[in-house]
């Protein structure tokens, strides 16, 4: 009887541990079961991505619709190529959609903001967004300001 109680207690302990892990995974880190595979990939080229990195948000009108998967350098043109995964539910982005890199708040993280155009046809998986606006780099901005003031 005593041994059975111990086994029961140990079983409950293990169960609570596993539940805590699931809680951390799902609720805290927002890892969804259907994450990955259910989206489609788009590319965009930027002169400068600032501090954008993988897992940065991709938004439309402030709503998260995807994530940055990868940022790498195009070795011929020396521009940054950003690979984004967009949720499959948002499959009607017009082909003249523009992408710009924005900053959340004054010191916040950088993210990609998409803005839709007026074209009839939609972007397909693997397409590239042509119209891009690079991140604002504070030093460049100050430089421009000084140059104009002269």
């Amino acid at each position: 009887m005593r041994a059975r109680n111990i086994e029961l207690a140990v079983g409950i302990f293990m169960l609570i541990g596993v539940l805590a892990f699931v809680y951390l995974a799902m609720r805290v880190s927002g890892l969804a079961m259907d994450d990955g595979g259910s989206g489609y990939t788009l590319y965009a080229r930027f002169e400068n991505v600032g501090s954008l990195k993988s897992r940065s948000k991709v938004t439309i009108a402030g709503v998260v619709v995807g994530r940055v998967v990868n940022v790498h350098l195009d070795r011929e043109d020396f521009v940054a190529v950003v690979e984004m995964e967009i949720s499959a539910k948002v499959d009607n982005l017009t082909s003249d959609t523009s992408a710009s890199i924005m900053t959340a708040g004054v010191l916040g993280e950088q993210y990609v903001a998409l803005e839709l155009g007026a074209e009839e046809d939609f972007l397909q998986a693997g397409d590239e967004i042509e119209d891009t606006l690079s991140a604002l780099v504070l030093e460049e901005l100050i430089g421009k300001f000084l140059f104009n003031a002269k």
Partner: peptide
């Protein structure tokens, strides 16, 4: 076995 489970329980309860 116990400490990693306890650590995760700690984190979950803390949050």
């Amino acid at each position: 076995i116990s400490l990693p489970l306890l650590g995760m329980i700690f984190s979950a309860v803390g949050i």
